[in-house]
Design a protein around this nucleic acid. Structure first.
Length: 250
DNA sequence: AGAAACGGGAGTTTTT
DNA sequence: CAAAAACTCCCGTTTC
């Protein structure tokens, strides 16, 4: 079992690294900055265990957009989604809520980043405060900063790997399309929009914990895929593969 | 006047 | 492989 868990996390990490490598402009060495990795893993662990919904405020050191925090985050996503998938196989069809993120065909990589996900990520990144800020975080209301909205748009376009430069105009067009689905709505105020309740919930840091509680009632006790022990397993896996981190057991 | 907002519509890429 | 989804790009028009 432990090997399977390790394989999955390892695969998730590989996939996340690939994404980073594709978008990184500078030299990217593998393995990553181990200190960063260690810090962030501890952070995720902390967040997960506590269900801390204000983790945006306690992010560690600030870094560029394409960094190891992103990789670890993605890896954690992939790993967790994989587990949920597996667990769901034993659940009757009609009791399922389709997971928001699914494996791609071939089982590699993840579903492409959506605009609202990117926006939310930026809102959680203190470095982006010059481009986008919360107006009312609890209600999911945010606004772009006029002076730097183009910069945010450019970063979005880059992240997506678009050929031409993304502009606020074009990004706002996509935002207006969200009106139809209700994922994001426009607020009267200048450059101000609001995430829907559903999206907000889906993007919250405690989402995975909530999902775990929700799904764990369907999981047999001896399966334990979603138990908090997995996060300890993650942690152990890290040290097993990066012994230089100095895990006490290695 | 100028910035921001709007929405039609064709084109592209990714997912189903 | 076809269809749908989720943008992307362009543009004329309207509102603030």
């Amino acid at each position: 079992m432990a090997c399977v868990e390790q394989d999955k996390l390892g695969q998730a990490f590989e996939d996340a690294f690939e994404v980073l490598r594709q978008h990184s402009t500078g030299d990217l060495q593998y393995p990553p900055d181990l200190l960063d990795y260690k810090n962030y893993l501890a952070f995720i662990n902390h967040c997960h265990v506590r269900g801390n919904s204000s983790c945006c405020a306690v992010l560690p050191v600030e870094e560029p957009v394409y960094n190891w925090r992103t990789v670890i985050n993605s890896a954690a996503d992939l790993y967790f989604e994989g587990n949920i998938h597996q667990s769901l196989q034993n659940i009757p069809e009609n009791q399922l809520v389709q997971p928001a993120v699914l494996q791609q065909k071939g089982g590699k990589g993840r579903k492409k980043l959506r605009l609202f996900e990117y926006l939310h990520e930026s809102l959680c990144n203190p470095e982006m405060a010059s481009c986008i800020q919360w107006v009312d975080e609890n209600r999911g209301i945010f606004q772009f900063i006029s002076k730097n909205k183009e910069k945010l748009a450019q970063l979005w376009g880059k992240r997506k790997g678009n050929r031409k430069t993304m502009t606020y105009q074009k990004m706002a067009r996509a935002l207006r399309n969200y009106e139809r689905t209700g994922e994001i709505t426009k607020i009267r105020r200048k450059l101000t929009y609001q995430f829907s309740e559903a999206i907000l919930q889906r993007l919250s840091p405690s989402y995975f914990l909530e999902k775990e509680i929700f799904y764990s009632q369907y999981v047999q006790p001896d399966q334990g895929h979603l138990s908090l022990n997995n996060w300890n397993a993650n942690y152990n896996y890290t040290y097993a593969n990066y012994p230089e981190l100095g895990h006490p057991d290695c």
